[in-house]
Write a protein that binds this DNA or RNA. Structure first.
Lengths: 335, 335
DNA sequence: CAACAGTATTGAAACGTTTCAATCACTTCA
DNA sequence: TGAAGTGATTGAAACGTTTCAATACTGTTG
């Protein structure tokens, strides 16, 4: 019930505190008989080492902090999964924070992790001002941007090329013969979304096409459904014949709305392209064409790169970038 | 760059360490001018409070630990989400561990959190021996079982009635006129799975039906697809005309296999019932009938109940149970 | 038997906070 | 003018480890 300290274990076993510490950590040779006595005392008293004291004395925490935009989003769930695996392999524990694309919550977690003296910080920032992270990095806590490039700040990053992803999507839509594409996406302050739109708009422009934007409040299934309801309510000549959704959740919701609230056929009357290629994309009512990002690899690479730069102790910063890939399924017209 | 302590801030501001502490924590009245000087020094030096020292001295951590079976599973993602919200509201931070239904990993996280001196521990245990958790609880770290009942151990729990869920599923299948139901599910050592089977088998028996079991290695989409391949390969008179899957991921995978590898119609030739009613269940190729569990509420309730029992400081233990509910969609025959 | 080399163990400082009794500097009141 | 009261600030102990120099043992060797 009461908390047991090494002091009490030492008394019980008839040895000094230092010896107990050595037994617990294997940090020095201890005679077998002594170790046995100590272990018995630990068992009897239910001693549990106090991480705070341990860390205070030794100076570091052997943990990493990860702050993402939304843990309920399968893309970030995969990123977190990859990061967790890499941490496990490195013998580190991973603390996860969910900012919900809210800057205040983000900095709450960043501060929390900094106070925790994590060995490093992996962040997908919400806002555009990264000077706070930069100064944390300059004060000695390594920072790695995840799914967001450094954009001039003195920070390292691991990203997937969102502009290229946008191009892939529109190229495919245009190749399928669609002439009235539209973009479904919200929170365009997020560079991920903005870049996808930029790449898409570039290709649409090259083909002499407009690319109207249907704004959504969030990047969720529900928001996608709302957008879908608006789109199917349009007259035939106003309605897009293809939509590129900023992520798969939007695409899933959009598809639901098309099927529930209209007789439009997918892809003949309206084609749908998503982004992320989450596991469920394959199981949707009409299997979803999507731009695939290597999410787990992103998380894993972020951790590994952080540890590596950390080990080198250099203050150089690197931007690492992966390339997305189009996965064609039934929700778009064959080329 | 170097770590800055209160000592240095105090020197810089020309005050004592105690005053700095008071400024940082607002724990005592400090003159406005003094506070300003201290804050300036903090700013200039980039002081970040050391959580380890803080916790060592004050004795507690204001955090909770949560260990679940699989964070990639949307059900547990929702549980975690609910728990996180409740923690935020209570001003606590939530540490999450993923056991991957591996007992060793589970106890690694439990130990880690215990060393961290979390204010409480929320666990969905993998194995059946809960004596380890029981002794942790008896030593003063409150433990709450999540999605698993205490089964005689001196522990509190929050669960959803899995036997009732199994009954719901089979009742619906039978009411639709199916006569050869089967159960798709793996890891029957998990009580969640075993109970669903128990409830289903009870109802099948009452209707005079067999309930063959197709075992799967895991509870994932991939495992469901494998099971589906086996089932569709059976001859017409051997093949079940309805399957009850232990969770939605299995059901999604199973459905993929039916559609890819057979001409069977859903639900006419084979009906499918899932479990959990994850967000995507509605978006599957044929919308999935599923047994819904209040996942977020489960997580939230677990946190709130833990804090409440903690505050009462009583050593009584309570089992709280929610009731699942059937959501009928197109993957089963209408009644 | 003295000197020596290992081992095993000990003791105490240090880590950076929080906390609380003690002190200090002013006012106010009688 | 002295006493009492008020509010701001200080000083030092304590939290439970780790770590390392110092010490106590145990054999071994010349």
């Amino acid at each position: 019930m009461a908390k047991v300290s090494m002091r009490e274990v030492a008394d019980r076993a008839g040895v000094s505190v230092g010896t107990v510490s050595h037994v617990v950590n294997g940090s020095s040779k201890v005679a077998e008989a002594t170790a046995a006595k100590v272990n018995a005392a630990i068992e009897e008293l239910g001693f549990v080492r106090n991480a705070a004291a341990r860390q205070l004395r030794s100076g570091h925490s052997s943990s990493l902090g990860l702050v993402v935009l939304d843990t309920a989003n399968p893309f970030f769930a995969s990123v977190a999964h990859g990061a967790r695996q890499a941490c496990d392999e490195a013998g580190l524990s991973l603390l996860i924070g969910d900012s919900g694309t809210d800057e205040a919550r983000e900095s709450k977690y960043v501060d929390l992790f900094a106070e925790q003296r994590v060995n490093g910080l992996l962040v997908t920032p919400t806002g555009s001002d990264l000077s706070g992270l930069e100064s944390i990095a300059s004060r000695g806590t390594p920072v790695m941007l995840v799914d967001r490039d450094s954009n001039g700040y003195a920070l390292s990053s691991v990203t997937v090329d969102n502009i290229a992803g946008g191009r892939l999507a529109l190229d495919h839509i245009i190749a399928g013969g669609c002439t009235r594409p539209a973009f479904i996406g919200g929170q365009q302050s997020l560079p991920q979304v903005a870049d996808r739109l930029t790449g898409a708009r570039e290709r649409a422009g090259q083909a002499g096409l407009e690319l109207p934007v249907f704004d959504t409040a969030e990047l969720t299934i529900l928001a996608g459904r709302d957008a879908g309801e608006k789109v199917v309510a349009l007259t035939d000549d106003q309605r897009p014949d293809a939509v590129f959704c900023a992520n798969d959740l939007l695409a899933v919701g959009f598809m639901q709305a098309v099927i529930m609230f209209s007789d439009l056929r997918i892809p003949e009357d309206i084609a749908i392209v998503g982004y992320d290629d989450i596991d469920y994309a394959f199981s949707t009512i009409v299997p979803l064409t999507s731009v695939r990002q290597p999410a787990e690899l992103l998380g894993r690479t972020a951790v590994e790169a952080l540890l590596q730069e950390n080990a080198l102790a250099s203050d150089e910063h690197h931007d690492r970038q992966f390339t997305p890939e189009l996965v064609v399924r039934g929700s778009t017209r064959p080329v």
